[in-house]
Design a binder for these strands. Structure first.
Length: 570
DNA sequence: GCCGTTTTCGGCCCGACTGTTTTCAGTCG
């Protein structure tokens, strides 16, 4: 899929045109096209061949032509032309907080500055302060911006941010008198990575509330502490902002700070056509406020159904909300079992018994033990004999326990030649067979796709685990034709996993949406190696919700009886 | 550059903050 490649190209195009002082609406048009293409669940190459590029919202005649040109020749002549006049170093300067295109253009034109290092030197010599619109304070801000850019961390994984937030909210509630408290921003939307966290509260004494916030034991650094906004850094470099808002505009503020930006812009455009206006203070008709205490009011006044935060990415959810056709998203309480857990028989650390008890405590009906297979020596993969022993142990435990069914499973390795790491005769004996790739990540796309297709064709394989192999913090996905994988999964009735482990989330939101659209079934497994990782089911459910999945799309919302029927029929 | 139950031309989200101004430009979220 070249979607991301093309999205990045248009994003850079927008940056370059911005520097050149082009019309801002044209720049925004490129930005919008870049975002929509990057979010697209279908292969853009396929859309081009079908001649439906212009059905993509934000893609008109000009951009469609450029996409076509890129897909056919590997480059876009206009892009190459613009690029000659705008070195990458100049674009890098625009990433300094406080430095926008205008300021970069100014220092470049008047002082010939074309890199961050040169800029820093010029500021230190006081060469900027005499330029029009500049001053000593601006110079100081630029230096601060450069320092900020250098120390600013990467976005962190959702599964890392959530425990930090939970701990802070719990401690904060003990110390401050607040009425309502909710996180907003990308964390409320459960995006797979988080830049910073915004928390919204209502309460009486703003200053006191902010004071309590900045005195939390987790605080490493205080960035701001006013009457309505406090900003701290906690260990790990994560920034957390707390905003105190009046009750009367709590809903509007929550809606506003939850975003996404694209979703909010789209809502405001609709408001405008209806003679209304939305801000973080409320929704207005003329000067009259017609709502804002509750978040729902913003949507209902616009004639829309309330949209779950996970869907607010401007990927078509607003049109569905207008027609009253939003999906009924799956919820965590719908989940009946975890279909991917490792025990201490391979590289996990809990006994099967501990896992069974923990799963029962979570209210599950079943849990699948899926330890690694024999060739994965470094992960303690089970020999055929050990796997048979484990099946015997699971049988014994099932006799002992009530209220939870332990399923005998495996995470069988799909070897580099596409064969499975256990013979069919053994796989046949298991309740659940999960298959996945752990080696040969660098193989060409056709090879890896073929490996997955042959695993999908094996009648004993029930689920393909982490289908793209990516690790959020450290490893890009291997090259694979997901369209072929999804089509084959739909054909064979094999499920595709949403791996809920915090560093995987694989399939991701747009992938699982596409897979479901193509008729494939999905399942969520935590890949937990510890009983205290079972909570990550919440992350998997979030991915499913961001992929618009309903209860019926996921195997592990089924009762144990129905799930067993699926397994035996498969 | 995109888009159309107000428009095929003339629009294109909204408000706050900062630092520089003497009424506003630039930047941010």
């Amino acid at each position: 899929m070249k979607n991301r490649e093309i999205a990045k190209l248009f994003e850079k195009m927008a940056d370059m045109l911005e520097f050149k002082g082009e019309n801002v609406f044209k720049i925004n048009a490129y930005r919008k096209a870049a975002r929509v293409i990057g979010d697209l669940s279908q292969d853009i190459d396929k859309l081009n061949r079908e001649g439906t590029l212009r059905d993509i919202p934000g893609v008109g005649e000009g951009i469609a032509k450029k996409i076509k040109e890129y897909l056919e020749t590997g480059q876009i002549s206009k892009y190459e032309g613009v690029r000659k006049g705008v070195p990458d170093d100049l674009l890098a300067m625009m990433t300094i907080p406080g430095m926008g295109p205008k300021t970069v253009a100014l220092v470049h034109k008047t002082l010939g500055i074309s890199s961050i290092a040169e800029l820093e030197e010029a500021v230190e010599k006081g060469r900027l302060r005499d330029l029009p619109g500049m001053g000593v304070k601006k110079e100081e801000n630029i230096l601060r911006g450069i320092a900020l850019l250098r120390q600013s961390g990467e976005r962190i994984a959702l599964g890392v941010a959530i425990p930090i937030l939970d701990e802070i909210v719990a401690e904060f509630k003990r110390r401050a008198k607040v009425q309502k408290i909710l996180p907003a921003g990308s964390l409320r939307r459960m995006k797979e990575t988080i830049g910073d966290i915004d928390i919204l509260v209502t309460g009486h004494d703003g200053r006191k509330i902010i004071k309590a916030f900045t005195e939390l034991p987790q605080v490493q650094e205080i960035l701001a502490a006013g009457d309505t906004k406090g900003s701290i850094i906690v260990p790990g470099g994560l920034q957390i902002d707390l905003r105190v808002v009046p009750r009367a505009s709590y809903g509007a503020a929550l809606q506003y700070f939850t975003g996404s930006k694209a979703h909010n812009i789209h809502l405001r455009e609709i408001a405008k056509t209806k003679g209304m206006k939305i801000s973080e203070y409320g929704i207005f008709r003329g000067d009259r406020k017609i709502g804002g205490r509750k978040e729902e009011e913003i949507y209902t006044e616009l004639g829309l159904a309330w949209i779950p935060p996970e869907m607010r990415e401007d990927r078509g959810e607003i049109a569905l909300a207008a027609q009253g056709k939003l999906p009924r998203l799956v919820e965590e309480k719908d989940i009946r079992g975890d279909l991917h857990v490792h025990s201490n028989w391979s590289d996990g650390s809990a006994t099967i018994e501990q896992i069974a008890l923990a799963a029962r405590k979570r209210g599950y009906q079943y849990v699948a033990i899926c330890d690694h297979s024999q060739s994965l020596k470094f992960a303690g993969g089970l020999s055929e004999r050990r796997l048979l022993e484990q099946m015997e142990e699971i049988r014994r435990l099932n006799e002992k326990f009530s209220g939870i069914v332990v399923l005998a499973g495996t995470e069988v390795d799909i070897k580099t030649d596409g064969s499975l790491d256990y013979p069919d005769k053994l796989l046949e004996k298991l309740d659940v067979v999960v298959a996945s790739i752990h080696s040969g990540f660098k193989q060409p796309e056709e090879k890896i796709t073929a490996r997955l297709l042959s695993a999908l064709d094996n009648p004993h394989v029930d689920i393909i685990a982490h289908p793209t192999g990516r690790l959020i913090s450290s490893r890009p996905p291997y090259l694979v034709s997901l369209e072929e994988v999804f089509a084959k999964a739909a054909e064979t009735g094999t499920a595709l996993e949403i791996n809920a482990y915090y560093d995987r989330l694989d399939l991701n939101d747009t992938h699982c949406k596409r897979a479901a659209e193509m008729g494939a079934k999905l399942s969520i497994g935590t890949d937990a190696h510890h009983t205290d990782q079972l909570w990550m089911m919440r992350l998997g459910v979030a991915v499913a919700r961001r992929g618009w999945l309903e209860k019926a799309d996921l195997l592990n919302t089924w009762s144990v009886q129905r799930f067993r029927r699926f397994l035996s029929g498969h």
